[in-house]
Each structure stands twice: as C-alpha cells, then as structure tokens.
C-alpha cells in the first residue's frame, strides 16, 4: 500500500508540474487517512476559481489572520460534519450567489476549499459536494440571517459531534473581537 502510495506521489508530482492532475487520497501527507475520494473534476480550474472569486478576501491559501474573517486553512473542513453544516457552506450568500453559474464548477470550487484548504480538518468518510447538491442548496441563500450566529451554531455542532477543537467557534484561534482590527 505504502509503496504504491509513494509511487503515486512521485508520478503525481511529475504530472502536476506539467499541469496534469492525478488521483490521491488525503493520506499523501502521512496523516490518518480519509479513504480515497473523488473530489474535483478540474482541479486547476477549481483553484483558479477559488483565487478569483474568494481568494481576495479569504486569502490565496485560505489564511488571512488577523483580518476579521473565518480562517479557512486547516479548519473549514469541520463544517462538513453534519448535513446542516454542509448546507450552510453552500448557502453562504457569496457561494450561493456566486457568478459561477455552472453547479459542477461551483462544486469543484467548494471541494477545493474543503478538501485542499481544509486539509486534515475534513472528518473521515466525508463525501464531496456534488453538482446536484450545490444546485439544490444555492437556492436557499442565507440572506435573512445573522451569519455570525449561523456559523457559531454549526461550529458548536462540529465540536459536539465530530470532536472539532473548541477554537473552531472563533474566526481563528486566539481571535479577540475587542482587539482585532
């Protein structure tokens, strides 16, 4: 298993640097494995879409500390914990109202966010977003809600049900609204 994994890693590195894509599990970094996932159809486009539509505010690599935004890097995966929190990610106005009209393309982008930027914070066995799921949930954008309260609700559920760290309730670990700018 490991030998094949290493071979895949080498082949993947070579192929990726030529702009090609290959298939790997999250075990490539040696952490406790999530099983192999079919996650993105066009990973390059997903990354471009992320940078263009989200990366300005959320950071090219999903990190913007100390700006007053939810830190995505290594954390956003926890929001795949429950069906409701998955839906929350797709119902965020900036996602639901994205100028990416193609639901498969938007699913690719959100899978990039969750599985690549979220990294090890994705609970084991998480199924990726599908075009159908995106198409369904984006009809219910959270436009009449306190997004802060919604996020906290789902973060609390993730702590309870998926053993997410308590710090997931904050925008980023150590965030203090009184001193943040």
């Amino acid at each position: 298993m490991m030998r094949i994994a290493r071979l895949s890693l080498l082949a993947a590195t070579a192929l990726f640097s030529a702009g090609l894509a290959t298939r790997l599990s999250a075990a490539h970094d040696g952490a406790a494995a999530a099983p192999a996932q079919h996650v993105m159809e066009d990973p390059n486009q997903a990354r471009v879409d992320y940078i263009e539509n989200c990366g300005g505010c959320h950071g090219v690599n999903g990190s913007t500390v100390p700006a007053q935004l939810p830190e995505l890097m290594g954390r956003v995966g926890w929001f795949m914990c429950t069906p409701d929190s998955r839906a929350y990610l797709l119902r965020l106005p900036n996602v639901a109202h994205s100028r990416i009209h193609d639901n498969a393309e938007l699913a690719d982008l959100m899978n990039y966010v969750v599985f690549v930027l979220g990294g090890n914070s994705v609970p084991a066995g998480t199924r990726p977003f599908t075009a159908e799921e995106v198409g369904r949930e984006r009809q219910h954008a959270l436009s009449n809600a306190s997004l802060t309260a919604e996020r906290l609700r789902h973060a609390t559920a993730a702590v309870k049900q998926c053993h997410a760290p308590q710090s997931i309730k904050l925008l980023y670990p150590g965030y203090n609204p009184a001193t943040a700018h």
Binding site: F16, T22, R23, L24, S25, V39, E41, P43, A104
Partner: peptide
C-alpha cells in the same frame, strides 16, 4: 497535491 476525480466520460467537464 490534492484529491481529484478520475476523469470519466460519464461526467462532462464543468464549463470554463
């Protein structure tokens, strides 16, 4: 490096 879908003829590639 990230996990990707195997390219399958059943799924049309998302529009660019």
């Amino acid at each position: 490096l990230f996990p990707v879908l195997p390219v399958s003829r059943a799924n049309a590639a998302p529009a660019k």
